[in-house]
Amino acid sequence: MRLLLTSDTHVPARAKRLPDALLAAMDEADVVFHAGDWIDEATLDLFEARSRRLVAVYGNNDGPGLRRRLPEVARVELAGLRFGTVHETGAATGRERRCAARFPDLDVLVFGHSHIPWDTRAPGGLRLLNPGSPTDRRRQPFCTYLTLTADAGALRDVTLHRLPPRR
């Protein structure tokens, strides 16, 4: 099962449109995860129309319309793995321990907020994945998103994709 992970799209506040590479990856994915900070309901509409299956949450910058349509935490079981998605996980220091305590029933937690790609394991095995942002790199060298494969209870081919600078 091919998965696409993204977060913090911030359209149209930080970018006028989504990168073509992200849209192409969305078309190839069996499941798309978005960890919040959409800003615009039209972007959610686009993801819903284009994704075979969408697992998504709202972020701290999302207004009442998005909060009515999306949960704060989403959970789904795919290919023998228990996934969760949330926007914020707090400070980087202690993140693994905090998330393992908050989400003891998950195998993988997809999160956003920092715009900083993250791939670690918590005590007990919880995998924490932050895809960064495809539209706002902040202090990172590139805008990014993640793709991976989930199969028979395992993650494979976890790939951080760097996007070319916007013109």
Rank of each mutant, 00 (worst) to 15 (best):
T135Q: 03
A154L: 13
A154F: 04
R166T: 04
H115V: 10
E41K: 05
A79W: 07
P164D: 08
H10G: 09
R82P: 09
H10T: 05
F83I: 05
V158N: 03
G80P: 10
A25E: 14
I39W: 01
L22Q: 04
S133C: 12
I116N: 00
E28C: 01
R162H: 15
D105K: 06
G65K: 06
T120Y: 00
D105P: 06
T144P: 07
E41M: 05
R53E: 15
L146D: 00
L78F: 10
E28D: 15
T93E: 15
A92I: 11
R50V: 04
F142T: 06
A122Y: 06
D157H: 13
Y58A: 07
P131R: 05
G94A: 07
R2E: 14
G125D: 07
Q140H: 05
R138G: 03
D157A: 14
V55R: 10
V32P: 09
L3C: 13
E72D: 12
M1F: 02
L106K: 03
V110C: 10
L18E: 06
R2I: 00
L126S: 03
G132P: 10
R137P: 12
A25K: 12
R17A: 15
D20V: 13
L44I: 08
T159D: 04
R139L: 14
T43H: 04
D62S: 04
L66C: 08
L155H: 08
G125E: 06
A79M: 04
D151Q: 15
A42H: 11
L109G: 03
P141K: 05
F83N: 08
V158R: 15
R139M: 12
P165N: 03
A25H: 09
L109Y: 05
